[in-house]
């Protein structure tokens, strides 16, 4: 077990390192940030001076080495805009993102798993057909569009809910629904197919032959087996959600990491972007690590190895 943990921990480091490297070079393609911070008619010398000050005039590999050297020590530099610690700014936004992610995930699971199970149990009935149809729609609808429609309906027309911002639980309703919609669709479809697969297994027949009632057969004997593939999917989705649902947060002006990243990209505030990527990659890798451990808990065949 310790072996496994150490191995996975090393993997986490590699993942984070690679993510930072890729993003470091990719954002340079967007151009030099200094021009955005100075007036368009700033004289050449002033731009050069500013680049000199921030170190953007050095060769890229030197900047990269410098960045990595500092990043390893937890220093991602200061925001170009506010001159505050970049990592600190990102961490400040994290709770809001967590709040949104966890709520929508729980909501999604509570809707999707019973729905998927029921769909599988009542396969090829009208209920199942409608369910499958809705999940396809749910997956196909882009979240920015759904977000706008929700705002239009509940904020603009009915004036029941705020269209954006954060702070009170009421503010969470629309962004949570928007985020959950996609996950519900994905989880439902996956639960349904995993369940259908398991319900045909020999061991389900064995349980039936022992006189196990249908409810117990499904909720205990079949669901536990179906959960194995679902855990992976949930971990992946949670990673995405915790990484800041960039578009949803932007649509609803939710003060989370996603919106921060989006704004920082627009401003070419590179230190914040990189600090954000660092946090997201770290969370993503850790969640997958936890999922693997959960996996072993649910599936004893992995546990022994």
């Amino acid at each position: 077990m310790l072996d496994f943990v150490i191995k996975r921990f090393l993997q986490v480091i590699v993942v984070v390192f690679l993510a930072l490297t890729v993003v470091f070079f990719l954002i340079r393609l967007a151009g030099d940030p200094t021009t955005l911070f100075l007036p368009p008619d700033a004289p050449r010398e002033q731009i050069e001076e500013y680049r000199e000050l921030l170190g953007y005039n050095r060769p890229l590999y030197v900047q990269y080495g410098d960045f990595m050297y500092n990043a390893i020590q937890g220093d991602f530099g200061e925001s170009l805009r506010s001159q505050e610690d970049a990592l600190g700014i990102v961490l400040d936004r994290l709770p809001a993102t967590f709040q949104l992610a966890i709520t929508s995930l729980i909501l999604a699971l509570f809707i999707a798993i019973p729905l998927g199970v029921l769909s599988a149990y009542k396969r090829n009935t009208v209920f199942d057909r409608i369910g499958v149809g809705l999940t396809v729609v749910g997956q196909a609808v882009p979240s920015f569009w759904l977000g706008l429609i929700l705002i239009f309906l509940f904020a603009a027309q009915l004036q029941l809910l705020p269209s954006g911002g954060g702070g009170t639980p009421v503010h969470m309703i629309l962004p949570t629904l928007t985020l959950a919609a996609y996950s519900v669709a994905r989880f439902t479809r996956f639960t349904r197919s995993a369940m259908l697969d398991v319900l045909q297994k020999d061991y389900i027949r064995t349980a039936k032959a022992s006189g196990v009632p249908t409810m117990r057969l499904i909720m205990r004997y079949a669901l536990r087996n179906s959960l194995i593939p679902i855990i992976t999917l949930v971990a992946l989705d949670l990673g995405v959600l915790l990484g800041g649902a960039v578009i949803t947060e932007a649509v609803f002006s939710w003060p989370g990491v996603g919106r921060l990243l989006w704004q920082s990209l627009m401003n070419r505030d590179f230190p914040i972007v990189l600090a954000g990527v660092f946090i997201i990659a770290l969370i993503y890798a850790i969640i997958n690590f936890v999922a693997d451990i959960l996996y072993a808990y649910v599936n004893p065949q992995i546990r022994v190895k």
Binding site: D202, Y203, T206, G211, V212, R224, N225, I228, Q301
Partner: peptide
């Protein structure tokens, strides 16, 4: 029927490898 199954009539299946639930 459930009261009979596994109680008064029981059954042994062909495939012992797949007839037991792997997670219990």
């Amino acid at each position: 029927y459930r009261k009979i199954r596994g109680n008064e009539i029981s059954m042994i299946f062909q495939e012992p490898m797949t007839s037991l639930n792997p997670v219990f």
